[in-house]
Design a protein around this nucleic acid. Structure first.
Lengths: 225, 225
DNA sequence: CGAGCCGGTAACTAAACAGTTACTTGATGG
DNA sequence: CCATCAAGTAACTGTTTAGTTACCGGCTCG
């Protein structure tokens, strides 16, 4: 991780005047910038995010930001890539093929909903990127292989379900995933306008639980024979 | 509308030198600004939209924009309000209660999908507003009554379906509407990232038609007994 | 030990931005 | 035919912004 390697613990100076300057830690600074940028881009979008605000949130300054990430656009793309890596990595750990087809799909629906719920910044980043017609994501070279695994595994589960006669023949893996993602994404990312216009606080635990059950119900009834 | 009222049609000058300066038309200028602002805000969000760009798109200048709308925030709220009025007005014309319960719900699903498809700027504005946690929509005084009609009419249709034994007893009007809106919104507003990561062009007519049928199918199977 | 490198700071710059002001033009009514 | 007023123009202002530059200080290795 750290190039200057070895005994990284002994760096602390004993001089009392040095207490404001924390020990140097490139990895931590880099991670802090990425984390701060994730929050800033999620809250304000690519256009609305401020480089100064990111530096301040990270407890550092612009010089370091440009040093580690080049410029605002490259930093944004990094944030977006990391967000995708996050969800796809967690998804793989599910192993939805280890259960019965019905349980596997239900599990994926539950996982997706809960991941969205715990990672509002991911939803927001997707929204921003789509407003810009995937301008930056399209340039990404890292994200070609990442998503095929999901569709492949989902496809296997559906095939098994069809052979067992529990799923309809027309069930399509991409459609099933889009259904699950739609129901989670819209409810959460649009909760503020929806709560306002319909006068119901959608983020309340009661409603949240009801919608979780609804997602699983809708997904399964739409593909069950 | 126009304070100086009366005979607004006879204003045209016959002087040939006046051809570059179009006739004065406050209503048209106002509408042009609102239209230009809708596109600019939809494409760039509240933070990313540029007042100069709006004026240029409208074929006018900032002075007129500030004259008619006050400032950028008030203009943005106006755009948002008009967008909501647009969809809710079109929805009312449907009269989903005039058909059988099943047909009524199917009709609402089809309408919503097609409206979203034809008004991408509406979806984008919702996205922007939600990123800001409905900061401006909450301030709107015009939009309290607008949405209750939809839920009321939907509720009636569901009740009728339950009495006829075609719908399950647990079907909830808000859930049904959220299901329909989710499936349309996510597919369209996230089409760019989805097409990129899954390598399938979702805006192609074949896929569009398949998803339209899917929405109706999912909505109805989720509430049918 | 001291040269140089690396993590980090802060002040700066050129451009872009929202909002304003001084002005022009042309229609209208007395 | 001129005083008035509203529609419209364009240049300006103070502030904010992305990106840069000059500098600091401590660690490490020759």
């Amino acid at each position: 991780m750290n190039d200057s390697g070895g005994n990284g613990e002994k760096k602390r100076s004993r001089r009392p005047s040095a207490e404001r300057t924390a020990q140097r830690d490139p990895e931590r600074t880099r991670a802090a910038i990425l984390d701060a940028a994730t929050r800033e881009f999620a809250e304000n979008g690519m256009g609305g995010a401020r480089v100064d605000a990111i530096a301040e949130r990270a407890g550092t300054n612009k010089r370091m930001l440009y040093h580690y990430f080049g410029d605002k656009e490259q930093l944004y793309l990094r944030v977006l890539e990391e967000a995708y890596v996050g969800i796809r990595t967690a998804e793989r750990a599910l192993h939805i093929g280890d259960r019965s087809p019905e349980e596997g799909i239900g599990e994926l629906a539950l996982f997706t909903w809960r991941y969205f719920l715990q990672h509002p910044e991911f939803l927001s980043l997707l929204g921003t990127e789509n407003m810009h017609r995937a301008r930056w994501l399209r340039q990404s070279v890292r994200l070609k292989e990442l998503h095929s695994h999901l569709i492949g595994e989902l496809s296997d589960v559906l095939e098994r379900g069809k052979k067992q006669g529990v799923f309809i023949e027309t069930a399509d893996p991409l459609h099933v995933y889009l259904t699950i993602a739609s129901l989670g994404y819209f409810y959460l990312s649009n909760q503020y306008t929806l709560s306002t216009i319909f006068g119901r606080d959608l983020i309340e635990p009661t409603h949240l639980n009801a919608w979780e059950r609804h997602i699983v119900h809708v997904t399964l009834t739409s593909i069950k024979r």
